[in-house]
């Protein structure tokens, strides 16, 4: 036990998968902390090591080296009482297809040692919370992708966890469903729960997370609040100029994104730059965001 108030502490955390086809060092000695009551985003390209890190937190993947503690206890020594306070929304839904929607929650609750009488109230409440009440008697196969995701999240809330680990909770969801999940996650954070999530949607990370950890190839590239990261890594203004690009524009960092080119312009020069754009040109002027940081830090090359 340390005096550290952090809920999660990782030090030199390393994971090497050994396989016949060759060893893969998925996580390379990373250090990070997660404070209680906050939302931390673990961001990185495909294959960066996000799910591996979450697997180690859940005790489903054994760290090769380093230490990883939750509630001040190494993950391998967590007691049942401590594990009951942690929930996972896995990257791939693993709902029970043999059971109905409400049975999925009920049985999962029993695993956590929750009394039937408590579950009788909590299951309908959670279904309502995730807008699944109408589907309570349906089989999992009768749900749409978005409904399954909502049910997986509902399932992770059945034990009223203090730490909620969400691996790409909104991938493949329509805007309405994403907004519902954002609302719910923000509400959960307000009630003091700690969230650790991964997402490939930078707008989502910017909206939900107090702290961002950018990782790639198993290494931490940088961390901080979304604001800090934007400030540190990209100029404040982005001019998204539709091609053809007018001649004689002032020289700034640019990025070709296909049908348009992004110009990164710092705060002081933004006004002057805009004036320099010919009237006929089409462009979008927006503040720099986390997506710009992500591309800047991880490069443009497509991953695995």
């Amino acid at each position: 036990m340390t005096a550290d108030k952090s809920l999660i502490v990782a030090q030199g955390l390393t994971k090497t998968y050994t396989a016949k086809s060759g060893d893969v060092m998925a996580v390379k000695g990373i250090d990070f902390k997660v404070m209680p009551g906050t939302c931390t985003g673990l961001l990185g390209p495909n294959g960066a090591g996000k799910s591996t890190t979450m697997g180690m937190l859940m005790g489903l993947t054994r760290p090769t080296e380093g230490t990883l503690t939750i509630f001040g206890t190494p993950t391998s020594e967590l007691t049942r009482e401590q594990r009951v306070r942690i929930s996972l929304v896995p990257q791939e839904d693993n709902l029970d297809p043999d059971l109905t929607v409400s049975e999925n929650l009920f049985v999962y609750g029993l695993f956590f040692g929750i009394a039937r009488s408590v579950l009788k109230d909590r299951v309908p409440q959670l279904l309502d919370y995730m807008q699944l009440t109408e589907k309570s008697g349906a089989r999992v196969s009768q749900l749409s992708g978005g409904m399954k995701r909502r049910l997986t999240i509902a399932r992770a809330l059945i034990n009223d966890p203090d730490l909620l680990i969400l691996d790409e909770p909104t991938t493949g969801l329509d805007p309405q469903a994403r907004v519902l999940i954002w609302q719910r996650l923000l509400e959960l954070k307000k009630t003091g729960k700690t969230l650790l999530l991964t997402t490939h949607y930078m707008d989502e990370a910017q909206r939900l997370c107090d702290q961002i950890i950018m990782i790639d190839h198993g290494d931490i590239l940088d961390e901080g609040t979304p604001r800090q990261l934007i400030k540190k890594h990209v100029p404040g203004h982005v001019f998204d100029m539709t091609k053809p690009i007018p001649k004689n524009l002032p020289l700034y960092e640019q990025e070709d994104v296909g049908d348009s080119v992004l110009f990164y312009v710092n705060d002081e020069d933004a006004v002057a730059f805009r004036k320099a754009i010919p009237e006929k040109a089409t462009y979008l002027h927006r503040p720099a965001n986390l997506e710009d940081v992500f591309l800047r830090l991880t490069g443009r090359r497509i991953r695995e």
């Binding site: 859940m58 005790g59 489903l60 896995p90 791939e92 709902l95 029970d96 999962y108």
Partner: peptide, 13 residues
């Protein structure tokens, strides 16, 4: 296919 074992392990089993 069902990933049930993994889901049970995540629920303290």
């Amino acid at each position: 296919m069902q990933g049930s074992y993994q889901s049970w392990l995540a629920a303290t089993l």
